[in-house]
Design a protein around this nucleic acid. Structure first.
Length: 197
DNA sequence: GAAAAGATTACCT
DNA sequence: GGTAATCTTTTCC
């Protein structure tokens, strides 16, 4: 029997999920490529999904990045393989990121409900609460996990716009926030500019 | 061991 | 538009 690297056991999926190569790219590129994709979360017997409409990139040498000062117990998932889910707690809520290169990640800020009867996934904390993402999902590999995975864009998407990131005190001038133009579920209005992609 | 800060949200004026 | 809530992680003494 020949060894296989990439074929997990089980029935073939009707739609292929986003794989390691999708996330193993420059973080800004992944942040844009994630817009329009579907994020699925299975909790118990139910499953919910959103179409991602807003993301933020956190890159190397970025003082707003949780990994800026190196690896700690809290941010260890930031150094997992591409496609690792980094979930952290802030105030009363949790926020979810997808790791690209080591120490870099994309914060998931908002989605449009597409399955599971979700309520208000607009805003990073609400997105997690709506989908049922909890801190126990920290470190999950979304390229393999049966409970959290992503599938490609379906159909056309709106143009991408960009703007300053939200809620941070340092490096606020960097235009590392990306969204799909005109999407009603995008959180907090900000001065958007059209992005060159 | 104590204090401060935080990739937020809800509710106030 | 501004601030309190609320609690974990990080940092400092």
């Amino acid at each position: 029997m020949t060894r296989r690297n990439e074929s997990p056991p089980g029935p073939p999926a009707p739609v292929q999920r986003l794989d390691r190569a999708f996330f193993d790219r420059p973080t800004r590129q992944v942040a844009c490529a994630l817009l329009g994709t579907l994020l699925w979360v299975r909790s118990g017997r139910s499953i919910g999904a959103v179409r991602l409409v807003e993301t933020e990139a956190y890159v190397a040498h970025d003082p707003a990045n949780h990994a800026f000062r190196g690896r700690t117990a809290r941010n260890r998932s930031m150094f997992g393989p591409p496609g690792t889910l980094y979930v952290y707690r802030i105030h009363q809520v949790v926020c979810a990121n997808l790791v690209t290169r080591p120490g870099e990640a994309v914060l998931l800020r908002a989605g449009a409900p597409v399955a599971g009867g979700l309520t208000n996934p607009s805003g990073p904390g609400r997105l997690c609460r709506s989908l049922g993402i909890e801190h126990r999902h920290d470190g999950v590999d979304v390229t393999r996990s049966p409970s959290v995975f992503l599938t490609p864009r379906a159909g056309r998407t709106s143009p991408i716009v960009r703007g300053p990131r939200v809620g941070i005190r340092r490096a606020t001038e960097l235009p590392l926030r990306f969204a799909l133009a005109g999407e009603p579920w995008v959180s907090r209005p900000k001065p958007w500019r059209t992005a060159r992609t």
